[in-house]
């Protein structure tokens, strides 16, 4: 866990030039594991992974 937080914070510093603003930032960084878990769990569960985005078109299509 410590490696995950340290590695992630190093990446944020490298890519964005931002350092943890307060102790709570470490907890939020740690919580990113949950984001990864939830995201990866969806990978094989959805039947339309190759569809293009077209959100605006979908809004129009879903009209009454």
């Amino acid at each position: 866990m410590a490696d995950f937080v340290a590695d992630t914070e190093a990446a944020i510093a490298l890519w964005h030039g931002i350092t943890p603003p307060n102790p709570a930032a470490h907890r939020f960084t740690e919580d990113l594991r949950l984001v990864i878990g939830a995201f990866e769990a969806l990978r094989e569960s959805l039947g339309f992974e190759e569809e293009p985005s077209a959100f605006e078109a979908a809004l129009r299509e879903a009209k009454r």
């Binding site: 959805l46 339309f48 992974e49 569809e51 293009p52 985005s53 077209a54 959100f55 605006e56 078109a57 979908a58 809004l59 299509e61 879903a62």
Partner: peptide, 8 residues
Amino acid sequence: SRRGAILR
């Protein structure tokens, strides 16, 4: 990219 498909 999945937003449109999920909405549909």
